[in-house]
Design a protein around this nucleic acid. Sequence first.
RNA 1: GGGGUGGUAGUUCAGUUGGUUAGAACGCCGGCCUGUCACGCCGGAGGCCGCGGGUUCGAGUCCCGUCCACCCCGCCA
Length: 587
Amino acid sequence: MAEQLGELSRTHTCGALRPGDVGTEVVLLGWVHRVRDLGGVLFVDVRDREGVTQVVFDAGAATMAKAKRLRSEFVVGVAGAVRRRSAETVNPKLDTGEVEVAVRELTILNEAKTPPFPIADDTPVSEEVRLRYRYLDLRRGRLQANIGLRHRITATIRRYFDAQGFWDIETPILTKSTPEGARDYLVPSRVHAGEFYALPQSPQLFKQILMLSGMDRYVQICRCFRDEDLRADRQPEFTQVDVEMAFARPTTIFGVIEPLMAEVMSVIGVTLARPFRRMPYSEAMAVYGTDKPDLRPGMPIQDIREVFRASSFRVFRDIVAGGGTVRGFVVPDSGATSRSEVDGLVDEAKALGGSGLVWARRGEDGTITSSVMKAVGEADVTRMLDATGTGQGQILLVAAGEPDAASKLLGQLRLNIARRRGMLKADHWEFVWVVDFPLLEWDAEARRYLAMHHPFTSPVDEDLDLLEREPGRARAKAYDLVLNGTEIGGGSIRIHDAGLQARIFSLLGITPEEASLRFGFFLEALEYGTPPHGGIALGLDRIIALLLNESSIREVIAFPKTAAAVDLMAGAPSAVDRRQLKELHLA
RNA sequence: GGGGUGGUAGUUCAGUUGGUUAGAACGCCGGCCUGUCACGCCGGAGGCCGCGGGUUCGAGUCCCGUCCACCCCGCCA
């Protein structure tokens, strides 16, 4: 039977008591973590958010009979005196392990069904069960710690932006669908038959409008919604730290975000070196085979076309002559790599869709071997090893063909090798700004250009005259922030000039009529004195997952959804009443 | 949309070439126990083998379909 709280007031949390409190009368409120019933004497670990404290029911205690009823996860209040534990019974694993509470009065505030999985230890439980009983999973140490850190990070972020003069401004959740980019979540209007609101993919247009409204510096920790297929690092709703600044150029944004990240990292006791490295998109693609390079393992991809320009190896010579590439990277300390492991890499390359992987190695004794020794000849194999600085005991992995495809393949292999060899150290933090993204990308299927970032992204000044001549070569004032191979943010300087915006729309094949239909309110607003402005959005869930070394953002979201976008606890989505559908003009 | 891994007790798992009564650990319930802290000891209960078909004398095991969870590709301006 549950008892009332009455006048019972907590004096300390379950993580607070120390030897200095010995002798004081305290009241603890919390959950029964574990019971150890020794017959005569009975120990209970009482748990709350802050920790665990052992309370004791001594032999002959008036409350003993009641204490015998206690089971895991009962909610209790205990009143009693703090006493020091004898030297042999101190528990060094608990912060409160030097003391215990001798219970004088026990209140059972609530009973509890036996939980489907243990709360008191962090033994693994299937994610399906954890998500079904998320409220219990949230009681366990892992999520308590994760959600706690998340709070400290968001508190740090808010404090930082306030100190920098940013205003936190809310933007609409019910907004207008703009069918560029990701699929929208739609909300039917009851008042307007057949019309819909969309949930924001991001507050992009609103934050830009706030700049022309003179708000100068905007920040919002806001939920965004995208109806796309999910991944370990993608949920249908996720949280962005959304930032926009008037009169900004890229370095203005970097100058705000780098100290922010330093503050964030300091929460977990890490000091960051600044400024962060900056790398053009073209370099990231060429040297790491990705637009989000993980700089921890080294092993840059090198261009070795020169070796084959006049080689007798026709396959590579023809590829180079035809505008293709030959690239490779050196795996250090691979002397121990067995022949079967090397063959495994060749298979792996095939599985990744590569046309082929060539290897060459210099043995510990200097002996040179290669998968193409016969075809290429020892002289060119040696030149290849020399050109890439492949030392004794090292192996060079080479791919040839179309430049992007070859680099992407090598980039994937590089990461797989790094992962297997433990070269991705969880306590190394490699930040890099990837800059100078292409403004546009060619959509071969639709036979037209698409905005790589979004259609409001400003081109780089020097490339303005490329827009009509060679649009594919124009670079954007866009940047991504990458941490350890994860994109944790992206942004751009925006177009603030209606004329330039019109040119971009025309490049994207958007007619003035279409543009006005989709973003008319925004384009009209631009005409009333828009300052140059730009911003960034940081992926808060991803940042926190990285800090905690969690491989899925579900571990840092209190109530996440499954890969099929289902909330297993609440049971969403669900069918609705026919009457509701009728009101919404959907039935 | 495509590919992969898994689904057996409340939980985490084992389960032989298809063969008799489907096991273990933890948890749970009962008993004993005065210094435990993953307390210990003794005893007990607990199963739609994800679901639906099929093959077979016989299916947890083989085949087909389907659902769920996770990972990856496509997708995510």
